[in-house]
Amino acid sequence: MRNGIAVSALSEFVNEIKNDPAEGIAQYGVELNWQSGTRSKVTALPMSVGPHTVSRDFSWEIDEPRQLLGCNHAPNPQEYLLSGVGACILVGFAVGASVMEIQLEMLKVTVRGELNLSGFLDIDPEASVPFTEIQYCIEVTGDGTEEQFETLRQTALRQSPNAMTIMKGAAVEGELIINN
């Protein structure tokens, strides 16, 4: 199967959503439990695609490097954020390549970002809390033309939910539960 993507099944799913938009609603969740210091354990919550539940039996750890008061036992939150953006672009690139009948031989996405910790630590009120810049690089080998790969790059970025969330933002709502 070209690039490991079942275009026929994808097409059927696309047209199913055109007929019933509820089939295209995906809901996700994660639960983080503090372990100690800067370390937490994350568990993926059951997600849903359309009207059906999907079991997600996955968990992973997050930590900070020693310089940021952690033990450097796991990737940190920023690395997970960047990997979420990069993986999302990568999926879009592979899917788009399959739609354009391009056979990929290699695909690598690198994502880098810079933070000014003066913002997080509130040392400088003028310093930015968010990333000041995120850079990505897509390295690809395949039978597409330069023009096709450029089209793919633009489409993969434009259609990436995670990249677009970073670029355009999303409403964040929260609550606090105090257990005494």
């Binding site: 275009v7 026929s8 994808l10 788009g96 739609v99 354009m100």
Partner: peptide, 18 residues
């Protein structure tokens, strides 16, 4: 039949239905 046709760019253009 195949979902694909020449000059398709993205998933929204795919034609095959179940």
């Amino acid at each position: 039949q195949s979902a694909l046709a020449p000059d398709m760019r993205w998933t929204s253009e795919l034609k095959r239905t179940r």
